[in-house]
Protein backbone atom coordinates (compact mmCIF):
# COMPACT_ATOMS: atom_id res chain seq x y z
CA UNK A 1 0.00 0.00 0.00
CA UNK A 2 2.71 2.42 1.03
CA UNK A 3 4.70 1.61 -2.07
CA UNK A 4 1.82 2.32 -4.46
CA UNK A 5 1.18 5.63 -2.71
CA UNK A 6 4.71 6.84 -3.15
CA UNK A 7 4.63 5.68 -6.75
CA UNK A 8 1.55 7.72 -7.58
CA UNK A 9 3.05 10.68 -5.75
CA UNK A 10 6.26 10.39 -7.69
CA UNK A 11 4.28 10.17 -10.90
CA UNK A 12 2.46 13.36 -9.97
CA UNK A 13 5.67 15.23 -9.22
CA UNK A 14 7.06 13.95 -12.48
CA UNK A 15 4.02 15.22 -14.38
CA UNK A 16 4.30 18.63 -12.73
CA UNK A 17 7.91 18.96 -13.84
CA UNK A 18 7.06 17.87 -17.36
CA UNK A 19 4.28 20.44 -17.66
CA UNK A 20 6.42 23.14 -16.08
CA UNK A 21 9.12 22.51 -18.67
CA UNK A 22 6.61 22.41 -21.51
CA UNK A 23 4.89 25.62 -20.44
CA UNK A 24 8.09 27.58 -19.85
CA UNK A 25 9.79 26.45 -23.06
CA UNK A 26 6.69 26.92 -25.21
CA UNK A 27 6.14 30.36 -23.72
CA UNK A 28 9.75 31.30 -24.44
CA UNK A 29 9.25 30.16 -28.03
CA UNK A 30 5.89 31.78 -28.66
CA UNK A 31 6.21 35.05 -26.72
CA UNK A 32 8.59 36.72 -29.19
CA UNK A 33 6.15 35.94 -31.98
CA UNK A 34 3.22 37.34 -30.00
CA UNK A 35 5.32 40.41 -29.25
CA UNK A 36 5.85 40.77 -32.97
CA UNK A 37 2.08 40.79 -33.56
CA UNK A 38 1.58 43.20 -30.67
CA UNK A 39 4.19 45.64 -32.02
CA UNK A 40 2.73 45.45 -35.51
CA UNK A 41 -0.55 46.87 -34.17
CA UNK A 42 0.90 49.69 -32.10
CA UNK A 43 1.32 53.31 -33.06
CA UNK A 44 4.77 54.88 -32.93
CA UNK A 45 4.44 56.50 -29.52
CA UNK A 46 2.82 53.48 -27.84
CA UNK A 47 5.75 51.31 -28.94
CA UNK A 48 8.11 53.43 -26.88
CA UNK A 49 5.88 53.56 -23.83
CA UNK A 50 7.25 52.31 -20.52
CA UNK A 51 6.04 49.92 -19.22
CA UNK A 52 4.96 48.49 -22.58
CA UNK A 53 1.50 47.10 -23.12
CA UNK A 54 0.93 43.64 -24.57
CA UNK A 55 -2.42 44.56 -26.01
CA UNK A 56 -2.68 48.14 -27.28
CA UNK A 57 -5.86 50.08 -26.58
CA UNK A 58 -6.56 50.60 -30.25
CA UNK A 59 -5.24 48.51 -33.10
CA UNK A 60 -3.25 50.43 -35.67
CA UNK A 61 -3.96 48.40 -38.77
CA UNK A 62 -2.48 51.22 -40.83
CA UNK A 63 0.95 49.70 -40.01
CA UNK A 64 -0.01 46.91 -42.39
CA UNK A 65 -1.13 49.41 -44.97
CA UNK A 66 2.20 51.18 -44.62
CA UNK A 67 4.07 47.88 -44.82
CA UNK A 68 2.67 47.25 -48.29
CA UNK A 69 2.98 50.85 -49.50
CA UNK A 70 6.24 52.17 -47.97
CA UNK A 71 8.03 49.47 -49.94
CA UNK A 72 6.65 48.10 -53.24
CA UNK A 73 5.45 45.04 -51.37
CA UNK A 74 3.32 43.51 -54.10
CA UNK A 75 6.06 43.86 -56.67
CA UNK A 76 8.48 42.05 -54.35
CA UNK A 77 5.80 39.47 -53.65
CA UNK A 78 5.37 38.86 -57.37
CA UNK A 79 9.15 38.48 -57.83
CA UNK A 80 9.44 36.12 -54.88
CA UNK A 81 6.49 33.98 -55.98
CA UNK A 82 7.90 33.74 -59.49
CA UNK A 83 11.35 32.64 -58.32
CA UNK A 84 9.98 30.29 -55.68
CA UNK A 85 7.49 28.68 -58.06
CA UNK A 86 10.14 27.71 -60.62
CA UNK A 87 12.71 26.77 -58.03
CA UNK A 88 10.42 24.50 -56.03
CA UNK A 89 9.07 22.88 -59.18
CA UNK A 90 12.59 22.27 -60.52
CA UNK A 91 14.06 21.09 -57.24
CA UNK A 92 11.27 18.62 -56.54
CA UNK A 93 10.77 17.32 -60.08
CA UNK A 94 14.43 17.12 -61.07
CA UNK A 95 15.50 15.60 -57.75
CA UNK A 96 12.85 12.91 -58.18
CA UNK A 97 13.91 12.37 -61.80
CA UNK A 98 17.55 11.84 -60.86
CA UNK A 99 16.62 9.80 -57.78
CA UNK A 100 14.62 7.45 -60.00
CA UNK A 101 17.72 6.89 -62.12
CA UNK A 102 19.74 5.98 -59.04
CA UNK A 103 17.02 3.82 -57.50
CA UNK A 104 15.93 1.67 -60.42
CA UNK A 105 18.71 1.24 -62.96
CA UNK A 106 22.02 -0.51 -63.31
CA UNK A 107 24.53 1.25 -65.50
CA UNK A 108 28.31 1.49 -65.58
CA UNK A 109 29.75 3.79 -62.94
CA UNK A 110 26.50 4.15 -61.01
CA UNK A 111 28.06 3.59 -57.60
CA UNK A 112 30.81 6.10 -58.23
CA UNK A 113 28.32 8.73 -59.33
CA UNK A 114 26.24 8.05 -56.26
CA UNK A 115 29.28 8.47 -54.04
CA UNK A 116 30.06 11.77 -55.75
CA UNK A 117 26.48 12.87 -55.19
CA UNK A 118 26.78 12.11 -51.48
CA UNK A 119 30.06 13.99 -51.19
CA UNK A 120 28.56 17.10 -52.81
CA UNK A 121 26.03 17.19 -49.96
CA UNK A 122 28.92 17.82 -47.58
CA UNK A 123 30.63 20.40 -49.79
CA UNK A 124 29.86 23.90 -48.57
CA UNK A 125 28.59 26.05 -51.43
CA UNK A 126 30.78 28.97 -50.35
CA UNK A 127 33.76 27.69 -52.34
CA UNK A 128 31.80 27.70 -55.58
CA UNK A 129 29.83 30.85 -54.75
CA UNK A 130 32.24 33.42 -56.21
CA UNK A 131 33.19 31.53 -59.42
CA UNK A 132 29.49 30.82 -60.08
CA UNK A 133 28.73 34.50 -59.54
CA UNK A 134 31.48 35.48 -62.00
CA UNK A 135 30.16 32.91 -64.46
CA UNK A 136 26.65 34.34 -64.32
CA UNK A 137 27.89 37.90 -64.59
CA UNK A 138 29.90 36.87 -67.66
CA UNK A 139 26.64 35.55 -69.13
CA UNK A 140 24.99 38.90 -68.36
CA UNK A 141 22.53 37.29 -65.95
CA UNK A 142 23.03 39.79 -63.12
CA UNK A 143 19.77 41.52 -62.26
CA UNK A 144 17.76 38.65 -63.68
CA UNK A 145 16.10 35.77 -61.83
CA UNK A 146 17.99 33.21 -63.91
CA UNK A 147 20.91 32.63 -61.48
CA UNK A 148 18.37 31.86 -58.78
CA UNK A 149 16.27 29.49 -60.88
CA UNK A 150 18.39 27.81 -63.57
CA UNK A 151 20.77 25.80 -61.30
CA UNK A 152 17.77 24.01 -59.78
CA UNK A 153 16.97 22.50 -63.18
CA UNK A 154 20.34 20.75 -63.22
CA UNK A 155 19.46 17.83 -61.02
CA UNK A 156 17.63 19.57 -58.17
CA UNK A 157 19.43 19.31 -54.84
CA UNK A 158 21.79 16.51 -53.92
CA UNK A 159 20.28 15.96 -50.49
CA UNK A 160 16.77 15.72 -51.95
CA UNK A 161 18.00 13.24 -54.55
CA UNK A 162 19.44 11.12 -51.78
CA UNK A 163 16.27 11.16 -49.68
CA UNK A 164 13.98 10.42 -52.62
CA UNK A 165 16.20 7.58 -53.77
CA UNK A 166 15.88 6.02 -50.32
CA UNK A 167 12.12 6.40 -50.60
CA UNK A 168 11.91 4.97 -54.11
CA UNK A 169 13.82 1.88 -52.98
CA UNK A 170 10.87 1.02 -50.72
CA UNK A 171 8.38 0.96 -53.63
CA UNK A 172 7.70 -2.66 -54.64
CA UNK A 173 9.01 -3.67 -58.05
CA UNK A 174 5.88 -5.64 -59.00
CA UNK A 175 4.05 -2.44 -59.86
CA UNK A 176 6.44 -1.31 -62.54
CA UNK A 177 7.01 -4.82 -63.87
CA UNK A 178 3.30 -5.06 -64.69
CA UNK A 179 3.43 -1.63 -66.35
CA UNK A 180 6.53 -2.62 -68.37
CA UNK A 181 4.66 -5.69 -69.63
CA UNK A 182 1.93 -3.38 -70.84
CA UNK A 183 4.56 -1.49 -72.82
CA UNK A 184 4.91 1.57 -70.63
CA UNK A 185 8.12 3.55 -71.04
CA UNK A 186 10.45 4.18 -68.13
CA UNK A 187 9.48 7.82 -68.08
CA UNK A 188 5.78 6.90 -67.95
CA UNK A 189 6.51 4.61 -65.01
CA UNK A 190 8.33 7.41 -63.27
CA UNK A 191 5.59 9.91 -64.01
CA UNK A 192 2.51 7.75 -63.51
CA UNK A 193 3.63 5.35 -60.79
CA UNK A 194 6.56 6.74 -58.80
CA UNK A 195 5.49 10.35 -58.49
CA UNK A 196 1.91 9.64 -57.32
CA UNK A 197 3.12 6.98 -54.88
CA UNK A 198 5.66 9.34 -53.34
CA UNK A 199 3.30 12.18 -52.55
CA UNK A 200 4.21 12.58 -48.84
CA UNK A 201 7.94 12.48 -49.58
CA UNK A 202 7.58 14.94 -52.45
CA UNK A 203 5.49 17.33 -50.39
CA UNK A 204 7.98 17.19 -47.52
CA UNK A 205 10.82 18.01 -49.87
CA UNK A 206 8.63 20.66 -51.48
CA UNK A 207 8.18 22.33 -48.09
CA UNK A 208 11.93 22.38 -47.48
CA UNK A 209 12.53 23.67 -50.98
CA UNK A 210 9.87 26.34 -50.52
CA UNK A 211 11.37 27.49 -47.22
CA UNK A 212 14.86 27.57 -48.71
CA UNK A 213 13.77 29.62 -51.69
CA UNK A 214 11.36 31.93 -49.87
CA UNK A 215 13.88 32.72 -47.13
CA UNK A 216 16.94 32.98 -49.37
CA UNK A 217 18.80 36.22 -48.73
CA UNK A 218 22.35 35.61 -49.95
CA UNK A 219 21.29 34.68 -53.51
CA UNK A 220 19.09 37.74 -54.16
CA UNK A 221 21.65 39.92 -52.37
CA UNK A 222 24.35 38.79 -54.79
CA UNK A 223 22.39 38.77 -58.01
CA UNK A 224 19.69 41.45 -57.74
CA UNK A 225 20.77 45.10 -57.55
CA UNK A 226 17.86 46.78 -59.26
CA UNK A 227 15.21 47.52 -56.63
CA UNK A 228 12.49 46.54 -59.09
CA UNK A 229 13.85 43.00 -59.04
CA UNK A 230 14.04 42.62 -55.25
CA UNK A 231 12.52 39.70 -53.41
CA UNK A 232 10.58 40.09 -50.16
CA UNK A 233 13.55 39.08 -48.01
CA UNK A 234 15.77 41.57 -49.77
CA UNK A 235 13.13 44.30 -49.59
CA UNK A 236 12.72 43.65 -45.89
CA UNK A 237 16.48 43.81 -45.39
CA UNK A 238 16.51 47.22 -47.12
CA UNK A 239 13.54 48.40 -45.03
CA UNK A 240 15.74 47.55 -42.04
CA UNK A 241 18.59 49.60 -43.46
CA UNK A 242 16.57 52.82 -43.46
CA UNK A 243 17.96 55.32 -41.01
CA UNK A 244 15.03 55.69 -38.65
CA UNK A 245 13.57 52.33 -37.76
CA UNK A 246 9.81 52.34 -37.38
CA UNK A 247 9.08 49.12 -35.60
CA UNK A 248 5.32 49.08 -36.14
CA UNK A 249 5.34 48.95 -39.96
CA UNK A 250 8.54 46.90 -39.93
CA UNK A 251 7.01 44.18 -37.76
CA UNK A 252 3.84 44.28 -39.85
CA UNK A 253 5.90 43.75 -43.00
CA UNK A 254 7.87 40.96 -41.29
CA UNK A 255 4.65 39.17 -40.40
CA UNK A 256 3.32 39.48 -43.93
CA UNK A 257 6.58 38.05 -45.29
CA UNK A 258 6.63 35.00 -43.06
CA UNK A 259 2.89 34.30 -43.23
CA UNK A 260 3.08 32.19 -46.43
CA UNK A 261 5.64 29.79 -44.92
CA UNK A 262 3.42 29.43 -41.86
CA UNK A 263 0.28 28.82 -43.92
CA UNK A 264 1.95 26.30 -46.21
CA UNK A 265 3.42 24.44 -43.28
CA UNK A 266 0.12 24.09 -41.46
CA UNK A 267 -1.82 23.27 -44.62
CA UNK A 268 0.64 20.52 -45.49
CA UNK A 269 1.36 19.36 -41.95
CA UNK A 270 -0.42 16.04 -42.41
CA UNK A 271 1.79 15.10 -45.36
CA UNK A 272 4.84 16.59 -43.70
CA UNK A 273 4.57 14.38 -40.62
CA UNK A 274 4.04 11.35 -42.86
CA UNK A 275 6.92 12.38 -45.12
CA UNK A 276 9.31 12.80 -42.21
CA UNK A 277 8.61 9.30 -40.99
CA UNK A 278 8.90 7.65 -44.41
CA UNK A 279 12.05 9.37 -45.57
CA UNK A 280 13.79 9.72 -42.23
CA UNK A 281 14.45 13.35 -43.10
CA UNK A 282 16.21 15.42 -40.51
CA UNK A 283 15.15 19.00 -39.88
Amino acid sequence: MAITLTRTRRKKIHAIFVYLFLIVSSAATVLPLLWMISTSLKSGDIIFQIPPKWIPNDFHWENYYRAVTDIPFFLYLKNTVLITFFRVFAEVFMSAFVAYGFARFHFPGKNIWFLILLSTIMLPGEVTMIPVFLMFSELGWINTFKPLIVPAFFGGQAVFVFLLRQYFLTIPRELEEAALMDGASRFQIFYKIFLPLSKPALITIGIFSFQGSWNDLLGPLMYLNDSNKFTLQLGLAMFNGMTKVEWGPLMAASILVLLPTLIIFFAMQKYFVEGISVTGIKG
Binding site: M94, P131, G155
Partner: peptide, 25 residues
Protein backbone atom coordinates in the same frame (compact mmCIF):
# COMPACT_ATOMS: atom_id res chain seq x y z
CA UNK B 1 22.29 3.69 -70.56
CA UNK B 2 18.68 4.53 -69.86
CA UNK B 3 19.44 5.04 -66.18
CA UNK B 4 22.31 7.30 -67.13
CA UNK B 5 19.79 9.43 -68.99
CA UNK B 6 17.83 9.96 -65.80
CA UNK B 7 20.84 11.07 -63.79
CA UNK B 8 22.36 13.11 -66.63
CA UNK B 9 20.81 16.47 -65.59
CA UNK B 10 22.56 16.12 -62.28
CA UNK B 11 25.87 15.08 -63.87
CA UNK B 12 25.68 18.10 -66.15
CA UNK B 13 24.96 20.33 -63.14
CA UNK B 14 27.80 18.70 -61.25
CA UNK B 15 30.27 19.74 -63.95
CA UNK B 16 28.83 23.22 -64.51
CA UNK B 17 28.17 24.19 -60.89
CA UNK B 18 30.75 22.17 -58.96
CA UNK B 19 33.73 20.86 -60.95
CA UNK B 20 34.29 23.93 -63.10
CA UNK B 21 33.75 26.52 -60.31
CA UNK B 22 36.01 24.62 -57.93
CA UNK B 23 38.88 24.52 -60.41
CA UNK B 24 38.25 28.18 -61.19
CA UNK B 25 38.16 29.03 -57.47
Amino acid sequence: YEGFLFISPWILGFFIFTVFPISFA
